[in-house]
């Protein structure tokens, strides 16, 4: 590069910021979201203070209740064991382990109101997995929904992405599918749809699963789960009656 070129190059780099725009509308929208989130961030603190004081009281009440049940069972001579067992999950696979907050549930409803059929996995091998950051991205012809699944320590368990691919051309779809097939380490079938499992090396192995239906494409990715676990998660996506 000559000196003139270098000056032009430095000038272009320096001016790059002026070429990137962010509408005031969008900026204000994020500002409102931030303000709301700051308020929410305060709330759990207050709630935890209440919990701190309430916990001993609740523990005492529960102790009384348990003692009462034992006392009554002695009096009526009925074995406790016959009075019921803890609730089991529907398919004995822990389908009730994924928690979704009300706010995230509302986000799903809003996305679905726009014609996107959200189908989230219902199973996680990790207890108390929570679905967070449920967001729709209206990218081009392929809008997609992304969700993060975290454990109780707020660590990533897996990520999920559902893309509406109904507007992708058939030729292009076939071409990409055959490439996915070639790249995948394992293929199996579930609900008449192929599941592609791929692992990516590195210091930590990323496990990915793709499922493609005529209307939607699903991607699951995880560093934490094993191949079998992430495949089980993929199988819990309710694909039946997907329009």
């Amino acid at each position: 590069m000559t000196k003139q070129e270098e000056r032009n190059f430095e000038h272009t780099l320096g001016n790059l910021n002026t070429k990137i725009g962010w509408s005031e509308d969008r900026q204000q929208q994020v500002r409102r979201r931030l303000a709301a989130q700051l308020n929410d961030t305060n709330s759990p603190e207050k709630a935890s203070r209440i919990r701190r004081y309430m916990a001993p009281v609740l523990a005492f009440i529960m102790l009384l209740a348990v003692t009462g049940v034992f006392f009554l069972s002695e009096v009526t001579d009925q074995p406790i064991a016959e009075q019921g067992t803890p609730k089991q999950s529907a398919d004995n696979r822990g389908t009730d382990q994924i928690q979704i907050s009300e706010a995230e549930q509302t986000a799903i409803e809003e996305i679905e109101a726009g014609g996107f059929e959200v189908r989230l996995p219902t199973y996680s091998p990790i207890e108390q997995t929570e679905a967070v950051n449920i967001r729709q991205r209206p990218t081009g012809n392929v809008p997609h929904v992304s969700v993060q699944y975290i454990n109780k320590y707020k660590e990533d368990v897996f990520t999920f992405q559902q893309e509406k691919i109904s507007k992708v051309s058939e030729t292009y779809r076939k071409e990409r599918l055959s490439q996915m097939e070639a790249d995948s380490d394992r293929q199996l079938e579930w609900d008449d749809y192929p599941i592609y499992y791929t692992k990516k090396g590195g210091t930590k192995t990323l496990k990915m699963v793709n499922i493609v239906t005529p209307q939607y494409a699903f991607t699951l990715a995880s560093y934490r789960l094993t191949a079998e676990e992430i495949i089980e998660v993929a199988k819990s996506i309710p694909l039946a009656d997907l329009n």
Binding site: T159, E163, M180, K200
Partner: peptide, 16 residues
């Protein structure tokens, strides 16, 4: 998150 974008790129590559 970049690895999960791979699938998206598969469908977006040419168009977007």
């Amino acid at each position: 998150h970049s690895p999960i974008q791979l699938f998206k790129d598969v469908f977006f590559e040419r168009e977007d």
